[in-house]
């Protein structure tokens, strides 16, 4: 499986949401990391043939995906970022319906749906109406529907957003399991998700991919150093004004700061190994959400 994005561009009027993206993806898990409004969803929608690019092309194994049409969508599983269900359908009904519009034969559909319901842990609620499910359960139904056709290309837009920490870990593991032998592209603005699941990281900013590579590669591209220093309370504001600070932790009278800087920011600073979070901060100039989505 090979997806090639060739100068892919999407403009909404004057605004460029996706800006000349060139990218080649093969089997493996790609983590698309970017702040709100970076263009992640727009890029994914084009990959799902939901939006027509205003420039450039997308090729699947050498063929234009918009020309392949149904044949391409047959390979595709998509979990949208913000999606809805038919509230009156039960979990089973819903999966059977999606299987039908995916063109899966009824016998196969029944077997697949049953397997997936068990896999995502929804067996107990399979006859419940969708409107009665919790947010986390709905997301499981979402991933189950994406997997129905055993897709070669799985696109997950912020699959872990809005989940509690336990649910997020379970969901993360589920995605890892499901990711074997296919091309998975998942977007998030949560760094730890990417660290756990993705083999390849794509950093997106202002519609463009600004950096790509494995975790180590990305970290090694960081031109500045990361410093850990313990300073008294009163010098904190001066330091945060001068440097990019990726973490602040108060300890009694003093404060532990994690600073990104080319030079040593203060006498007591110790040079430490950079994390993806530091790199994110360096490139995007702002802090990303951590596990609990606190900023």
């Amino acid at each position: 499986m090979k997806l090639v994005l060739d100068n892919l561009t999407k403009e909404f009027g004057e605004f460029v949401a996706v800006d000349h993206v060139n990218l080649t993806m093969t089997n493996g898990v790609y983590g698309l990391l970017g702040v709100n409004g970076a263009g992640k969803t727009t890029l994914m929608r084009m990959l799902c043939t939901l939006l027509k690019p205003t420039g450039g092309d997308i090729y699947c194994n050498g063929k234009d995906i918009f020309q392949l049409d149904g044949e391409y969508r047959n390979l595709l599983g998509y979990l949208p970022q913000d999606f809805g269900f038919y509230p009156e359908f039960s979990v089973k009904d819903y999966l059977f319906y999606i299987a039908a519009i995916k063109g899966i034969r009824p016998i196969v559909a029944r077997k697949r749906a049953k397997e997936l319901i068990a896999r995502v842990g929804l067996t107990k609620v399979e006859n419940k109406k969708l409107k009665k499910l919790s947010g986390g359960m709905k997301r499981r139904v979402g991933i189950a529907q994406a997997m129905l056709n055993n897709p070669q290309i799985l696109i997950l837009d912020e699959p872990t957003a809005g989940l509690d920490p336990n649910e997020r870990i379970r969901f993360r593991n589920l995605i890892s399991e499901l990711s074997e032998e296919r091309l998975v592209l998942l977007s998030t603005h949560i760094v730890s998700d990417i660290e756990y699941i993705a083999n390849e990281i794509l950093m997106m900013k202002g519609g463009a991919i600004v950096n790509e590579g494995t975790l180590d590669e990305i970290i090694s591209t960081m031109p500045e150093k990361v410093w850990d220093c313990i300073v008294p309370q009163q010098s904190v504001s001066a330091l945060t004004k001068r440097y990019k600070v990726s973490n602040i932790k108060s300890e009694n009278q003093s404060v532990n700061l994690r600073i990104i800087s080319a030079e040593k920011p203060c006498e007591t600073a110790i040079c430490v190994h950079p994390s993806l979070e530091d790199v994110f901060l360096y490139y995007f100039g702002e802090k990303v959400g951590d596990e609990n989505d606190t900023f």
Partner: peptide
């Protein structure tokens, strides 16, 4: 219009038959 109002449209139109037989 329900798919669009329920936001079930992305899944509908990204399904194999979503732009023809469905």
């Amino acid at each position: 219009s329900d798919e669009i109002q329920l936001k079930a449209d992305s899944i509908f139109f990204s399904a194999r038959l979503g732009r023809d037989k469905a």
